[in-house]
């Protein structure tokens, strides 16, 4: 109608009228949407090559109007390295989960950061292997019920959750490392700001950027999507704390 202005539009980088493949309320959708919004805003869609990973995060080519390269489980940063080293002017990012980037592929994540590869990694941390049905991963919380820890993860049996972002931040090649969450609208805005910053790091060629995003997995957390919102704030965040752990531009907080 007249006199109204459009303040939000579904990003063009998302394939039109195509839904996501995720469970209702899954955090992946929110992050994929934020990434698409930023790619539109930076105007880099035609210059971007995305690298998918293995897990719920695998289906990039089903919803993105982007060139996508696949990778073996945990090796997305290596495929991204091969691409970025071959085509340094392209915008290259990997989209991974806590299973891919922090469990099987943690060695690759760390070394990619140490080498300061000029790529960006977005790591969705929902403290579980979602695609395979909710098994415990490296970031699973102590006490968390999963299909492999049905009576709750016991530290004396399976150890403690890995603090991913803090560890990656210790790599000198990393230019920007943050952990955000996308449970509440406030957090979503902060998450977008962090991912924008990470993208800027790459566009300016300042080094490796890594954003870990705490996201809901209603199906495997056995909660409704709305219940996940408080669970993230009251429980997950206590272990996987939010914050900017490295920012070579300066210590400015998000």
């Amino acid at each position: 109608m007249n006199g109204e202005t459009l303040v939000y539009k579904r990003p063009e980088t998302l394939i039109k009228d195509k839904g996501f493949t995720f469970c209702p309320g899954c955090g992946h959708g929110v992050v994929l949407k934020i990434i698409a919004e930023l790619i539109d805003e930076f105007g880099i869609r035609e210059n971007t090559i995305a690298i998918s990973s293995v897990g719920c995060s695998i289906f990039l080519e089903k919803f993105y109007e982007l060139d996508v390269a696949g990778a073996s489980h945990g090796r997305s940063p290596c495929v991204a390295t091969g691409i970025k080293r071959s085509l340094p002017d392209k915008f290259v990012f990997t989209y991974q989960g806590d299973g891919d980037a922090a469990t099987i592929g943690f060695n690759e994540t760390i070394h990619t950061a140490c080498r300061g590869e000029k790529i960006t990694t977005i790591c969705i941390n929902n403290t579980t292997f979602g695609m395979t049905g909710g098994q415990a991963s490296a970031t699973t919380l102590v006490g968390q019920v999963t299909t492999t820890t049905p009576r709750g993860r016991k530290a004396e049996l399976t150890g403690y959750p890995l603090r991913v972002a803090e560890t990656v931040a210790n790599c000198e090649g990393a230019a920007y490392v943050a952990r955000v969450a996308i449970s509440t609208p406030k957090y979503i805005k902060e998450a977008k700001k962090a991912i924008r910053k990470a993208f800027e790091m790459q566009i300016k060629g300042l080094g490796y950027s890594f954003v870990e995003v705490i996201a809901a997995c209603p199906t495997n957390w056995h909660m409704t999507p709305v219940e996940c919102i408080d669970y993230i704030e009251n429980t997950v965040e206590k272990v996987h704390k939010l914050g900017v752990f490295k920012d070579i531009t300066k210590g400015e907080n998000i």
Binding site: I49, I51, A69, A71, S72, G74, R75, C78, V79, A80, T81, G82, I83, K84, R85, S86, L87, N107, E108, H111
Partner: peptide, 14 residues
């Protein structure tokens, strides 16, 4: 070598 062959894949895709 897990990493090196995947880097070859990355370059190869381009």
């Amino acid at each position: 070598e897990l990493a090196s062959i995947s880097m070859v894949i990355g370059a190869g895709t381009t």
